[in-house]
Design a protein around this nucleic acid. Structure first.
Lengths: 150, 150
DNA sequence: ATCACCCTTGACTATCCTTGACCTTTCTTG
DNA sequence: CAAGAAAGGTCAAGGATAGTCAAGGGTGAT
């Protein structure tokens, strides 16, 4: 029953704590600082981020290199609910159904009005102009990608 | 989670502030003054202007050398920017180009951050999963539809 | 004991920013 | 004009970050 937590685990928990403590949905931090805080090499941070803070687990990471670089770790919303929706969709979906889902996500407050509007536009048959089967499969991929990134 | 802005970022923001505060569509300033204000070498100003205040992001810079020289930074009209982008697109466009355009539209303030993120996602090769030529044509339709509806 | 699967480390790479020496253009003055 | 002063421009080197990858280290299951 000795130190049951690997360094990666500790770092994961620390980051999640920071995410809870902030008022925003994200934190911005320097990779090298995080590494120094845990007395490890910077690439360890990259490892933790790429194995744990991924869309499938409800997170997204954006970073910038060079002087003034940073890492931004963002928590995505309502992962569970979106998972279930994802199941429902399967791998093909009509323009109408897609529009409805986007509309519902908007009503649920998970998508802003402009976002919903632009997405609806790009999911329409007029813009896609593809054979129905192809279009429906593509739409399914688009909506699923959307759900995993909200 | 400090303010983490590079000098270049600060200068960019400062210039944008000046542009907002003036009644004109442009500002006229001396490179050396700007440099002194930020305690840096003048060529740093040139760097910021050439990486951030470019037509693709909705700006144009005109300058004159010699005694009495100046730099004039102008914000393009929305219509100019959209026209220019539409030209650039034509009827086929790669994922990378599409992502850049969306990013620029965001930096130009015409798209919110969320919108930009979702659009970038839906324009990616990973989501489209179509033959390159088909994908590039579709992307062109999507981005043009977007531009038309901004 | 061995295998599989993480985790950890560090050398190398990619990207972005900052600085300074040197160049070009325009104006002012004699 | 010619020369000097007063701008802005170019470019390459170096600094500050973050990313990639492959080799090696634990640890638990078989």
């Amino acid at each position: 029953m000795i130190s049951m937590w690997s360094l990666a685990d500790k770092m994961e928990n620390w980051i999640k704590l920071l995410l809870e403590e902030t008022d925003e949905r994200f934190i911005k931090i320097r990779r090298s600082e995080l590494a120094r805080h845990f007395s490890c090499v910077p690439s360890q941070v990259t490892y933790v981020l790429s194995t744990r803070f991924i869309p499938e687990r409800g997170y997204r990471v954006i970073s910038r290199r060079g002087a003034g670089g940073y890492i931004r770790i963002e928590r995505l919303s309502e992962a569970d609910l979106l998972d279930r929706l994802e199941q429902q969709i399967g791998d093909t979906i009509s323009a109408q159904e897609a529009a409805e889902i986007v509309g519902n996500l908007h009503k649920a407050g998970l998508l802003g009005e402009d976002v919903a509007q632009y997405l609806g536009l790009l999911l329409s048959d007029e813009v896609l102009q593809l054979p129905e089967i192809t279009a429906n499969r593509l739409r399914a991929r688009m909506v699923v990608a959307l759900l995993t990134n909200i």
